[in-house]
């Protein structure tokens, strides 16, 4: 409790004070005679999924509640915020919104738990995680773990661990020990993009096509190279976005593709980027548009989320299109 008081006082505007008014209760006093009572709910840990239960266990009362914990992950905080909960952790994260008296406090502290345990964060960085996430997004639930493992060619134990983690992060829903029943795929793609990007890792090479992107696209129509277009150009074939400046292409053999597409390596002014894929999953469920092979919408979205410039904005526009057209790209 004392720690909560210290942490909270540091964040309050000048003229505000906090003190204990009763066991488990704090009084927040503002300038003048304004004050509010707030019930403290301590949690040793709070997973994103558990936020759903908070409202169920304590239906709305007139007293404000403050969830306090040693650490609240970004995803947990996101869910607390959309649930309208006040929270405070010991790592500097807080959000308190009171109507009477009027008070708004929002601070950002540590993004990672300073005392993380093995359970806390799973890496979604590698090729295997990518294959799993692509399948979770592209296929319509329900499906069981075994089916998922089979479709992705992954070890069921690994699939199970990742699915458990995603479940805890409220990125998917499943019946207890049963099939996956729903996937929050926009949030899943955003979460994946935090760790996976063709632009990180030095797998991307930049080129100048002196005759312009249109000339390269023409050549792609008849090339024997194994390729798939992603990024803005691919998105523009599906959702209306501004004309793409950069052509981003996965190519199995970058050197060979560069030669056959008449591309010159360049440090600046590039209009084409070739990426050697980390995993052949980028070629899974490709589509053809006007004779050009483009990656699946889920792959375009994650690549755009990590693209420079307008990338993230274009990703959101594409995700919007994907929401409205699930029947087109999900199977």
């Amino acid at each position: 409790m004392r720690q909560s008081i210290t942490q909270l006082s540091e964040k309050l505007p000048p003229g505000w004070r906090v003190s204990t008014s009763a066991p488990g209760r704090l009084r927040l006093r503002g300038p003048g005679s304004q004050s509010a009572s707030i019930v403290v709910e301590p949690k040793t840990r709070l997973d994103p999924k558990e936020v759903d239960y908070l409202a169920a266990v304590h239906p709305a009362t007139s007293t404000a509640r403050l969830i306090v914990s040693p650490f609240l992950s970004p995803r947990t905080r996101e869910r607390l915020k959309s649930g309208g909960f006040n929270f405070l952790d010991m790592a500097g994260n807080a959000r308190i919104v009171l109507a009477t008296p009027g008070l708004f406090v929002e601070t950002h502290g540590a993004e990672r738990n300073p005392q993380a345990s093995q359970r806390d964060r799973r890496s979604l960085k590698g090729a295997k995680a990518g294959r799993l996430i692509r399948a979770l997004t592209d296929y319509i639930p329900p499906f069981g773990l075994r089916e998922l493992a089979k479709r992705t060619g992954l070890d069921p134990g690994y699939a199970s661990r990742i699915v458990d983690y995603l479940d805890g992060e409220a990125l998917l829903t499943r019946e207890v020990r049963g099939p996956i029943t729903g996937v929050d795929w926009p949030a899943l793609l955003r979460r994946w993009s935090q760790e996976s990007s063709p632009f990180k890792r030095g797998r991307v090479q930049w080129f100048l096509a002196a005759r312009g992107v249109a000339a390269v696209v023409s050549k792609l129509r008849t090339t024997a190279e194994r390729y798939a277009v992603t990024g803005s150009w691919a998105a523009a074939q599906l959702a209306p976005i501004a004309p793409p400046q950069l052509l981003l292409v996965y190519a199995e053999d970058v050197a060979s593709a560069a030669a056959s597409l008449d591309l010159l390596p360049t440090d600046s002014g590039a209009n084409v980027a070739l990426v050697a894929p980390l995993d052949p999953v980028v070629f899974d469920r490709c589509q053809e548009h006007k004779g050009i092979r483009i990656v699946a919408p889920s792959q375009i979205a994650v690549d755009l989320l990590t693209s420079p410039g307008r990338g993230p904005n274009e990703a959101e526009a594409l995700i919007e299109w994907m929401r409205e057209n699930e029947h087109v790209w999900r199977s």
Binding site: L208, A210, R211, Q245, T266, S268, G269, A270, N271
Partner: peptide, 13 residues
């Protein structure tokens, strides 16, 4: 315009 793109295209061609 993307910086350098047009100028370099001129030079190359």
């Amino acid at each position: 315009a993307v910086v350098g793109q047009i100028e370099q295209s001129c030079a190359v061609l």
